[in-house]
Nucleic acid binder design. Structure first.
Lengths: 194, 194
DNA sequence: AAGTTAATTGACTCGTCAATCAACAAAAAC
DNA sequence: GTTTTTGTTGATTGACGAGTCAATTAACTT
């Protein structure tokens, strides 16, 4: 039953199905057929819209990054002043959405991909630069010339805490993650104002 | 020309070849034949010794973790007092060996594996607990009741900095990595002694 | 010397899967 | 109302790769 103007719907369905299936499998060892089936279509159609498997994964990752970016921006508009903004960024990095198994899985596989697939590396670079620049612009008014080091440090803690929570033996504890990073932020601020 | 007592040599060769090939490919999408060929034998022999591909990868990762553990222990014997010991742990985490492309690749793929393969998760747990306990035992004499939080924080920074350096757009800068973490360590100590 | 064990491989099986293609269906355009 | 565009799939191709197996060779034992 071919209808017109379905392309965006189909693409979105495929992207979601990709995220789900990659999460299910925990790896990129997922067949295009599985994904297509979950999205309610044939594998041929998936190829029709995305060309190949890799592009499909990249589209899925782009989607995840877009959502994350939106969460950060959303949290930022509610924040008053640089310190609140920094806290908002931290909180946005540890929302429930970001800890869903599928998202964790996507990130880990994305890291692997970034080693060899230029487009993945490019996307990762964008994420890293955006986080850095966000942190930097709110750290500068608070800690001046220490901002650069503080941004690197906070960025690393955010990534590190995420990784450890995601791969910890027990269920991720978002509150603990946020507390740890906010605490590090406070320490950084206390230090930088001296 | 079958000789006796070759098993350990062959196994070691396979483990090394696995690390090399996984590094080359950047992923676990490496055929057993490729690995076996690099190790100078037939794929059948690889299966003979390790059973299946997964066990081979796990053996390779176990090897990497063993080397890392040895580096840490080696650095620790040279250190006097808790602070020097902490610095030694940090330095050992960012040696050139740990930043070789193959090792980075192994770690990233190991993370992915840890999501679904119980033995990988177990190994990762061992690494995490060892790091934590190492940090904790030297932090306690220095910062007392703050040791727990400090250990979590430092552990996260170590992992985070490693990840970022490994996946950064430019070549990893080991000195910068060490400096950043040592700096965080100093901050943690200054704070904890208050 | 005969038998056991370790080492070793080529060839094969069996399954899988990405990607392509020919063909068909329906809507839109003319 | 025919042509074009868009959507859609079943079937197929072509390649690849994990794991098995039977058979071979050499060393070690008794």
């Amino acid at each position: 039953m071919p209808k017109v103007g379905v392309e965006p719907i189909r693409k979105a369905a495929l992207v979601n199905a990709t995220i789900t299936e990659v999460g299910r499998a925990g790896s990129l060892d997922v067949t295009v057929s599985q994904i297509a089936k979950r999205a309610g279509m044939s594998s041929a159609l998936a190829h029709h819209y995305f060309g190949d498997k890799e592009s499909l994964f990249l589209a899925a990752m782009r989607h995840i990054l877009t959502l994350y970016g939106a969460e950060v921006r959303g949290a930022l508009v509610m924040a008053h002043g640089p310190k609140e903004r920094l806290q908002a960024i931290v909180r946005a990095s540890f929302t429930a959405a970001n800890f869903r198994g599928e998202v964790v899985s996507a990130w880990l596989n994305f890291y692997v991909m970034a080693q060899t697939v230029p487009e993945a590396r490019r996307l990762l670079g964008i994420y890293q630069r955006r986080l850095r620049s966000n942190l930097l612009s709110d750290l500068r008014p608070l800690v001046g010339r220490n901002a650069l080091r503080a941004a690197d440090s906070l960025g690393a803690i955010i990534d590190g805490v995420y990784l450890r929570q995601a791969l910890g033996q027990s269920q991720p504890d978002r509150a603990a993650a946020v507390a740890l990073v906010l605490d590090a932020l406070d320490a950084e601020l206390a230090r930088g104002m001296a």
